[in-house]
Amino acid sequence: MNEFDFRWALMLLCLLLFGLSFAVLLWAAWRHHRRGDVEGVNFHSSLAVEIAWTIAPCIIVLLLVWPTARIFWTP
């Protein structure tokens, strides 16, 4: 796989991740709106949720940045 094909594959992967996350966000908002749930659940004291919300974006960013960083590190 040459560099041009790799960049296109990476671009398609990023677009796929964006589309998937946007679709899940819209689905969750629509479902919440249709339910008419006025009282929300307070989960801010859940340590597991807070850690997951911190670690998941870090892992995604590292996976997206790794190919670029690897290019700069190789001589």
Rank of each mutant, 00 (worst) to 15 (best):
M1L: 09
N2P: 12
E3T: 10
F4M: 14
F4V: 11
D5T: 13
D5G: 12
D5E: 14
F6A: 15
F6I: 15
W8E: 14
W8H: 12
W8M: 15
W8G: 11
W8C: 08
L10S: 11
L10D: 11
L10N: 10
M11D: 04
L12P: 00
L12T: 01
C14R: 08
C14N: 03
L15E: 09
L16I: 07
L16S: 09
L17I: 02
F18E: 14
F18N: 08
F18I: 14
G19W: 02
G19Y: 02
L20P: 00
L20I: 04
S21N: 09
S21Q: 04
F22G: 06
F22M: 11
A23T: 10
V24C: 01
L25T: 06
L25Y: 05
L25M: 08
L25S: 10
L26W: 12
A28Y: 07
A28W: 10
A29R: 14
R31N: 05
R31Q: 07
R31F: 10
H33C: 06
H33S: 10
H33G: 09
R34P: 06
R34N: 14
R34F: 10
R35M: 13
G36D: 13
D37N: 04
V38L: 06
V38G: 07
E39S: 00
E39D: 00
G40S: 12
G40L: 11
G40N: 09
G40A: 07
G40P: 04
N42R: 12
H44F: 13
H44Q: 12
S45I: 00
S45D: 13
S45W: 11
S46G: 03
L47I: 14
L47T: 15
L47D: 05
L47E: 14
L47Y: 13
A48C: 03
A48M: 05
A48K: 04
V49Y: 12
V49G: 05
E50V: 07
E50T: 14
I51R: 03
A52R: 08
W53V: 07
T54W: 01
I55F: 01
I55W: 03
A56E: 04
A56D: 03
A56L: 02
P57Q: 01
P57N: 04
C58G: 11
C58M: 07
C58S: 09
I60H: 02
V61Y: 03
V61G: 03
V61F: 08
V61A: 11
L62K: 01
L62D: 00
L63T: 04
L64R: 02
V65L: 15
V65S: 11
V65Y: 03
W66F: 14
W66S: 09
W66E: 05
P67N: 08
T68Q: 06
T68K: 04
T68V: 13
A69R: 00
A69S: 09
R70F: 11
F72D: 01
F72L: 05
W73S: 14
W73E: 12
P75S: 05
